[in-house]
């Protein structure tokens, strides 16, 4: 597994964990293609809460503007992976 793929899996797992434990999303609903708003029922406050948890865990900083276009779980993971890789 290449570095970025490993990060990708790590971020996917971490974000899923936040969705389930902090935001009480049903674990069965979590898939890479799931729409965070339509399928998982998040709102903008939930998004901020989730991003904040990942920022803290991985020591990164994501701007509101970067989060704006994100719709699916995989898009969120891609954005966060990019941030973590850039930091390394």
């Amino acid at each position: 597994m290449k570095g970025e793929e490993m990060e990708d899996t790590k971020l996917y797992d971490a974000l899923s964990e936040v969705l389930v434990t902090r935001l009480k999303v049903d674990a069965d609903q979590i898939t890479p293609a799931a729409d965070l708003f339509e399928d998982l029922g998040l709102d903008s406050i939930d998004m901020m809460t989730a991003v904040m948890a990942i920022e803290e865990q991985f020591g990164i900083e994501v701007s509101d503007k970067e989060v704006e276009g994100v719709r699916t779980l995989q898009e969120a993971v891609d954005l966060l992976t990019q941030k973590v890789t850039a930091r390394a």
Partner: peptide
Amino acid sequence: EKGPRFVSPE
């Protein structure tokens, strides 16, 4: 402990 950036929006 962590700074203002980590205060919950809720």
